[in-house]
């Protein structure tokens, strides 16, 4: 993180473990309405996988995986997905976030399930982007642009 001493073991372990954390995070996000978990937990685990690579490989090398400038746009995109789902449901005739009015195929329970999935994806992307941006800003020492 601070001094770039390349340790082979730490780098190898982080590079090996990080994709598995990401896969589990995606499982937590996409399975969140059947089991414990959801967008916030999954997004935090995604951010933890990204931060693990940042800690192990150094901040400059980790920019190849997830550049510093992506954090805030990804967080904004997640919020936009959340808001857009609610707004599309409102345009469909219901209230804000009334998933039964989403213009999707299937019966109302299936539309509600898909709507909750969209919300979870939005929350996960927002939390992942913002937590990574917080880490980058702490390390950088100046505001994000």
């Amino acid at each position: 993180m601070m001094r770039g001493d390349d340790d082979a073991i730490i780098s190898l372990v982080a590079r090996t473990v990080s994709p598995f954390i990401m896969i589990f995070a995606l499982y937590v996000i996409f399975h969140g309405h059947y089991s414990p978990g959801g967008g916030f937990q999954g997004g935090t685990m995604l951010a933890a996988a990204l931060i693990l690579v940042r800690l192990a490989a150094g901040n400059d090398l980790a920019q190849l995986q997830f550049p510093r400038s992506w954090g805030t746009p990804l967080g904004s995109a997640g919020v936009l997905i959340y808001w857009g789902t609610g707004f599309v449901a409102m345009m469909g005739g219901g209230r804000f976030l009334d998933y039964a009015f989403l213009p999707l195929a299937g019966a109302a329970p299936q539309r509600r399930s898909l709507g909750i999935l969209f919300i979870e994806i939005g929350v996960g992307l927002a939390v992942c982007g913002i937590l990574t941006a917080i880490y980058d800003d702490l390390l950088e020492g100046r505001p994000h642009d």
């Binding site: 937990q41 935090t44 685990m45 951010a47 931060i51 937590l131 917080i134």
Partner: peptide, 15 residues
Amino acid sequence: GFTEAVVGGGVSGVL
């Protein structure tokens, strides 16, 4: 508990 483990034990320690 899941949220506490992920946030408290994972990310906030690093921060």
